[in-house]
Design a protein around this nucleic acid. Sequence first.
DNA 1: CGTTCGATGCACT
DNA 2: GTGCATCGAACGT
Length: 213
Amino acid sequence: MSRRVLPRRFYARPTLEVAAALLGKVLVHDTRDGITAGVIVEAEAYSGEDDPACHAAPGPTPRNAPLYGEPGIAYVYLNYGIHSLVNAVTEPAGHPAAVLIRALDPLEGLPLMHARRDTAGRAVPDVQLCRGPGNLTRALGITLRDNRRDLTGGALRIEDRGVRVPGIAWGPRIGIRVGVDRPWRCWVPAHPAVSGSRMGNALATGKGASRLP
DNA sequence: CGTTCGATGCACT
DNA sequence: GTGCATCGAACGT
């Protein structure tokens, strides 16, 4: 529908490159209820069967099949029984890898995001609507049914709207128990929508080199 | 402030 | 049966 939708070749390259390049891009979900969209400000790379934190670590299974397929496809899975987490599949087909989208700066459809997130009359500040991978899928209405959707066109997509990020910081991935040694999480320095400031996350405020780790 | 802990569903051993 | 790429309420200090 638009030339600003990221083409498949954007995803068909090293996962760390894609993760960095996704910062500043816009995740859009078009549903019956309306459009919601946000600027990606935090992401994590998961790449290869030798990455112990990657879902492909055990080798191919029915669940992780999308990771082995075409780049530019959404890999959505349920974790902790509650949260749908959305990834963008990367690298040429055959190399299992993806970028987990962890936080957005809310851009469009804020009222709809609030409607989806506000529970028990509990209001959520705008900047926290899409802070955290489970929160952003809830705000955008992304569920397991969106697994395998093509991000290069259609209702769930990622666009380039010309947003420039001021910098990129790198650090260890969050919430995993293995593979913590790999600094494969990247974020926009000091951005308030970046997750992790809960656990005394000094990293989230650090100045970032745009260089890959 | 800080840390702990229960909710909840599904893939995989 | 076990273990999560989480979240937020409920504690303790």
